[in-house]
Design a binder for these strands. Structure first.
Lengths: 155, 155
DNA sequence: ACCTTTTCGACAACCACGTTGACCATTTTA
DNA sequence: TAAAATGGTCAACGTGGTTGTCGAAAAGGT
């Protein structure tokens, strides 16, 4: 009878799958006029959303401190993907809003993700892919995703 | 008929699976006397292996510069998991070797990974898990894994 | 043998991403 | 109205990366 795979392979495969999709996404985004977008930026812009948010709230959504979230917002602003504007209703707050260029990345990302999923479906079959998604949902619901990846990995 | 999952869910699920396993591993390692081990350390120690290696070679295995690999080795040394010794056969080289404490982490990690895989097998069934592994292997062979995760994500 | 090229390790400067702690300004609340 | 909670920023630091430079040692070619 066949041996079980060694346990260490499973996380490697999961990570390789994630990284494969992320790399293809960013290669395609680079081709479509967004060469300087990094995975961290995509997560942050997704968390900012169409309505914008504040640094404190962004930090809560991303699972990092408000200072870290503020720095990320500054970088996105420097790259032209976000802007920080005063909140007329609350002089403490500064809203982080996506620029048209930021919305463009979000829209293109959604499209590319759908294409990549379709590629998986074609290769594996829609049934197998659905089962894979369902199994992952069973084992690791991506509830309130924490995206402090860089810090999580190394610090 | 059921709708397809949105494309952006797939990478999130893959990452959540990876992170779930990694978090459980490190929680267990902490319980077993290794509270300061980080994911990056585990990858580096795995790459150092039982025979030890040099900073340059470690950099190649990890897909990072020799300087970065050297820094990682220094940190592992500071934590007591590795030691750097002169190579008697080549005065340029300094071998990075795991300490007994380093080997201990590797052995415990392997055991915990097997336990975690067994937990997945119990929940999903061995067949489903094998299929999941096979499908991931199809879509993203973890060939020559690059583990510059922190830099890849953000820099 | 000798000179050139390659390799290894280290130093320095820098960037990205995260952390705490402290601080001030502005709501909110009691 | 005074006290507490909230939002943003500054500063200092840790960790994981990057280039570029450099000297010492090994390898290679003539």
């Amino acid at each position: 009878m066949a041996e079980d795979a060694p346990g260490f392979e499973l996380p490697l495969l999961l990570f390789a799958g994630f990284r494969s999709i992320a790399d293809q996404l960013h290669a395609e985004l680079a081709r479509q006029g967004h060469p300087d977008i990094r995975p961290a930026h995509g997560f942050a812009m997704q968390a900012i959303g169409r309505d914008g948010t504040t640094a404190s709230e962004l930090g809560r959504r991303l699972g990092v401190s408000k200072q870290a979230a503020g720095k990320t917002a500054d970088r996105l602003a420097a790259l032209g993907y976000a802007a920080r504007v005063d909140d007329p209703a609350d002089a403490r707050r500064k809203l982080i809003r996506l620029t048209p260029r930021g919305y463009d990345v979000l829209a293109r990302s959604a499209a590319v993700f759908d294409e990549l999923r379709a590629a998986w479906a074609e290769r594996l079959g829609e049934d197998r892919l659905r089962q894979l998604e369902a199994d992952l949902k069973t084992m690791a619901p991506p509830s309130g995703f924490r995206l402090d990846v860089a810090g999580w990995f190394g610090a």
